[in-house]
């Protein structure tokens, strides 16, 4: 689809470039911040960092943020 000026209202992310999300098989998901995460209980947590690392291994003690607990332990 060609990239044409959108008529979508301002603030609608569909009008801008897509947000890039970086996935790794052994590591967190990286998303450009700020990020707001809605948790299972309906509460939200927010990170204002320029990039945010989201836990995917579910071992983080600071979940949903990565705390490097995915690392191999020997």
């Amino acid at each position: 689809m060609p990239n044409v000026p959108s008529e979508a209202p301002r603030g609608d992310r569909r009008s801008g470039p897509p947000r890039r999300v970086t996935m790794q098989r052994c590591g967190p998901i990286l998303v450009d911040g700020p990020v707001e995460v809605e948790l299972e209980d309906g509460t939200t947590v927010r990170s204002d960092r320029f990039r945010v690392a989201l836990c995917t291994c579910r071992r983080s003690r600071r979940w949903p943020w990565c705390d490097t607990s995915h690392r191999e332990r020997v």
Binding site: G27, P28, L30, S47, R49, R51, V52, A53, R62, W65, C66, D67, T68
Partner: peptide, 11 residues
Amino acid sequence: HVEADAVHEQV
């Protein structure tokens, strides 16, 4: 630093 550096090390 736990949180910040988990991001920084990736970057």
